[in-house]
Simulated assay, not measured.
Amino acid sequence: MSDKELTTKKYWEAYYKNSHVNKQHILTVCSYYSPIWEIFISNSEVSKSLIEIGGFPGRYLAYLANRYNIEPTCLDYNSDLTQIEGSFMEMDVQHYHIIKEDFIKFKPKLKYDYVMSNGFIEHFKNYDDILDLHVKYMSENGRLLVMIPNMKGYIQFYKYLVDYKNLKIHNLKCMKLKVFEDFAERHNLSILHLGYYGGFPLGIHQKINFLQKIIYKLHRLVFKYFANDKLKKYPSKYFSSAIVGVFEKQ
């Protein structure tokens, strides 16, 4: 593990130990981002290539490959290939590639029409350097999609109360639009989309005590049944769960 990483390989292998290979689960999780996919993927019928950085367990790749008839590549250092292969099988994707390498050390041999990473750069202290490495994978006129969780604003307060272990493995410094605006300027990339996305992130990644359960249930009541529908229409930097950027080489 590098001293610039906030997580370890061991952490991620344990995190995804339980199988995420289920077609309905893949469809439910991935279709939530349908408006973003429509911006990211062009409607060209020409065969295209797609790589996901930190792609384990492969559900987004499998979904996009099936939906847009794109040949996918998963780059991830996770040693368990069964979930990635299972995701492709569930979505009836026959042709795919898996690169089992450390993204920081790996030198790409190919360029791709579409490059994406989801929940990746925020686990590094040097997030700007990690972002910059993504550009090496982009072909001429290629597109890049970066999605990261938003844990600032009121979300940070909520996470501090009930999900602190998860909060502290994320670098909140990268969770602002200015980081991505500067990134686009550094590499002369057009910004096709940049903004906050989604409802309030209620998920908890640790065991919680009685008081924390009350806090969680109150938030669940307010956001799931009242506020989240409005947040999906009018995203907020204080309450929405993600930051999404789509970029294109000029």
Rank of each mutant, 00 (worst) to 15 (best):
R143K: 15
D76C: 03
E85R: 13
L172W: 01
I243M: 11
L218M: 12
I98H: 11
A227Q: 05
I51Q: 03
L50H: 07
K105Q: 15
G198S: 05
H187D: 10
Y112L: 06
Q156G: 00
N118I: 15
K152G: 13
M138V: 05
L133P: 00
E90D: 13
H97N: 15
I70P: 10
L133A: 08
I214A: 06
I84E: 04
Q250S: 13
M138T: 05
E71G: 00
S31Q: 11
L133D: 12
Y225N: 15
Q206C: 07
Q24P: 00
P235W: 11
N228G: 05
P201W: 00
Y164W: 08
N18S: 14
K165M: 03
E13N: 04
Y216D: 00
Q83S: 09
Y68F: 15
H95M: 05
P108F: 12
F157Q: 09
K100H: 09
F120V: 10
S44L: 07
K107M: 13
K232N: 13
E52V: 06
S139G: 11
P201R: 00
F247I: 03
Y16H: 15
P35D: 12
D3N: 14
I215M: 01
E140I: 05
T82K: 12
P35G: 04
H97E: 15
F157N: 09
L202T: 00
R143C: 06
W37M: 05
Y60L: 10
E90C: 10
V29A: 02
W12C: 09
K4T: 11
T7F: 00
Y127I: 02
E90P: 09
P108A: 10
V162G: 01
Y68W: 07
Q24L: 08
K100A: 09
P57T: 08
R220A: 06
K4I: 07
I26R: 00
K168H: 08
F56L: 01
A227V: 15
L172F: 02
G199M: 06
D128F: 09
A184L: 07
E140Q: 12
P72M: 13
T73G: 08
M138A: 11
Y196R: 01
P201Q: 01
K152C: 12
K9H: 04
F180M: 03
D3C: 01
M175V: 03
L133W: 03
K178V: 09
L161E: 05
H134Q: 14
H205S: 05
L167D: 03
D80T: 12
K168W: 02
I26S: 03
I99K: 13
I191E: 10
V244W: 04
N66I: 02
D229R: 15
N22P: 02
K4F: 11
H187Y: 09
S47V: 07
Y234C: 02
W37F: 06
V29K: 06
E38V: 01
G203D: 11
P235E: 07
L133M: 14
Y127W: 10
K17Y: 07
F223Y: 15
D80W: 04
S241T: 03
I148Y: 02
I243E: 08
P72A: 12
V244D: 03
E13R: 02
N150G: 07
Y96E: 04
N126H: 10
S34W: 01
C30I: 05
V222A: 13
P57A: 11
N66E: 12
T7K: 02
F88H: 04
